[in-house]
Write a protein that binds this DNA or RNA. Structure first.
Length: 574
DNA sequence: GCCGTTTTCGGCCCGACTGTTTTCAGTCG
């Protein structure tokens, strides 16, 4: 029985929902949710912690009782307490509680009055009009339930960071065109550079008395006004993206930015810290009784809490507050640290531009080197190269490299890892290259042990330098393959391999937790754009965001090195 | 259910908005 942290977190969230519905002590409910958050954010598997006989009550929000329950789940795969709750409640209501506007009270009321226990039954009840007759509901809430269920069905519930960025840019421009608007800032998970975002939070400050919330509802991409008040307006854009706009006073701008940037867990921890100092923190400022002692800037708010300013990417309550309190925040990598891009394709396979065009675009970005890394023959759909084709392509790369000034073009390959762990090209060809990236592109469904063994075998190959997109996930589309990441990290460390942070916005693979685990294990990483065109070289920034969320500094990432240092590092492999 | 530089018991983050209410509960972030 192999239980992963997310399974335990899921069970705890179900318990929390059912306790909530059963009118349990709200702090008890919160304790389960908090424990689930802790497990989700943990860089290590709980099973391994238990194997090492570590004390789970050391983890934040886990006490004796929840530690015992975690033991039970790890050992049996189940939690008797949850099953009792489900039996008593007659159903699991977590699905319905995900619908906006429905919380525990309302879900319970609907179940008691109409017996609905699933989203489908609820939709039916709303369509035939019986929801409106339930005490606490009316025609409007019934209509909202129908709309919300439809909306959920029409689109996935989250947007890729890049998609959100594209949708929000023209809205920001529209807001800034309004002469009454002084500042426009995006907060929320978007500002924290999460790989996907559920909605967009925008903060504006404006001249007194101006009606910005009315102005935003007039934006031509608004398809629906969900709610609108004096200081807050929620709209849906035609792209399906939800935007929450908040108008905040200038004196509160920093406090509001902290508050609406989140994460929720970070905010709760900040407020608790404020309380310990006898202060109160809300979106209007930091208060000593009635006296506002900070609020205009984020720096002021953090400083008055005894903290240095924390970059938004780290605000997850994963240790950043303690680090900021003791001056141990890491110096994070930035785009300016990057000196080259080691993963890209050209029109020789499935890319759109020539080697020269890619090199010119990279040079224009200020890079000192790139590696051309075409697919190998197994990826037939991309026109992957066989041995002689790759050799010929490398001769071409060499010619372009000699002709070009100001940038070095390395010869590489993204060679497929076959399902037995061997490589798709013979060693004598791989040996002629500067860089060998290995990657899985099929058989994502292998059972955990075989998948792990397959990847570990590839990492043990003496010519492999980098493991590309290690889990194969496509955010929102394909789950990560079932692989023991800790074993992969160990294998990378023991065999002198690098792990890639693939910067493609739909991959972002490794994720931030794996980045942090790898760095702590002493494994270095490479951020690669996986560009298939010159424009896509810009995707590098998404990978940098991910690296920053994983607490990585420039020394954790090899493409911050000069070309000669890098080649030396790659050469150490053999 | 967790937790402790005021506490091992008694606290636990806080305000806006909505819809259905006659003064507010529920939900959200």
């Amino acid at each position: 029985m192999s239980v992963i942290n997310a399974d335990i977190a899921h069970i705890f969230r179900n318990v929390a929902d059912l306790l909530d519905i059963g009118n349990a002590n709200p702090f008890r409910v919160r304790a389960y949710r908090r424990a689930a958050d802790t497990l989700d954010g943990l860089g290590e598997s709980v099973v391994d912690l238990l194997d090492r006989k570590e004390d789970l009550t050391e983890l934040p929000g886990i006490g004796a009782d929840l530690a015992r329950k975690i033991h039970e789940i790890v050992e049996t795969g189940r939690l008797a307490f949850l099953e009792q709750l489900q039996q008593k409640a007659g159903a699991s209501f977590s699905d319905m509680m995900e619908i906006q506007g429905l919380g525990p009270r309302k879900v319970k009321a609907l179940y008691d009055a109409l017996g609905v226990r699933t989203v489908e039954e609820l939709e039916q009840a709303a369509l035939d009009g019986s929801v409106a007759g339930v005490r606490g509901f009316g025609a409007i809430s019934q209509e909202n339930i129908i709309k919300e269920i439809r909306r959920r069905r029409e689109r996935g519930r989250r947007f890729l960071y890049r998609t959100a960025r594209q949708a929000v840019a023209p809205l920001l421009e529209y807001l800034r065109r309004n002469p009454d608007v002084k500042h426009v800032e995006v907060a929320g998970s978007f500002r924290r550079c999460r790989e996907s975002v559920g909605d967009i939070d925008i903060l504006v400050t404006c001249r007194r008395g101006s009606r910005v919330t009315a102005y935003v509802t007039g934006y031509d991409q608004v398809s629906e006004v969900v709610s609108s008040g004096k200081t807050r307006t929620t709209v849906l854009l035609s792209s399906g993206l939800q935007v929450d706009l908040r108008v905040v006073p200038e004196v509160s701008r920093g406090a509001a930015l902290v508050y609406f940037t989140g994460s929720k867990a970070h905010n709760v921890a900040l407020r608790t810290r404020a309380l310990q100092k006898g202060l109160k923190l809300n979106e209007y400022g930091l208060f000593d009784h009635e006296q506002r002692i900070a609020g205009r800037t984020e720096e002021d708010v953090y400083r008055k809490l005894g903290l240095s300013w924390i970059t938004p990417e780290l605000r997850e309550n994963h240790g950043e507050i303690e680090a900021a309190g003791s001056g141990r925040l890491p110096r994070l990598i930035t785009f300016d640290d990057i000196r080259g891009d080691l993963h890209m394709h050209t029109m020789r396979t499935d890319g759109r531009n020539s080697v020269r065009e890619m090199a010119e675009a990279a040079r224009a970005k200020g890079y000192e080197y790139i590696a051309i890394t075409e697919h190998s023959r197994h990826v037939t759909i991309a026109g992957g190269l066989g041995p002689s084709e790759l050799r010929e392509h490398c001769r071409h790369i060499g010619r372009v490299d000699r002709e070009m000034e100001g940038i070095r073009i390395l010869k590489g390959v993204e060679v497929d890892i076959l399902d037995n762990g061997s490589l798709d090209l013979p060693d004598e060809v791989l040996r002629e290259l500067d860089l060998v990236i290995a990657a899985v592109h099929y058989s994502f469904e292998l059972p955990r042990q075989r998948q792990t063994q397959r990847i570990v075998t590839a990492l043990q190959h003496p010519l492999v330098n980098v493991l590309a997109h290690p889990t194969g996930r496509l955010i929102g589309t394909r789950d990560p393959c079932d692989v023991d990441m800790e074993a992969v990290i160990r294998a990378a460390r023991d065999n002198g391999c690098l792990l890639e942070i693939n910067a493609s916005p739909r991959r972002l693979d490794l994720d931030e937790r794996a980045c942090r685990m790898a760095a702590e294990a002493g494994v270095r990483m490479v951020v690669g754009s996986d560009a298939h065109s010159t424009g896509q070289l810009d995707m590098m920034q998404y990978g940098i965001n991910q690296a920053r969320r994983g607490w990585l500094g420039p020394d954790d990432v090899v493409n911050t090195m000069s070309c000669s240092e890098l080649l030396e590092q790659l050469g150490m492999k053999e």
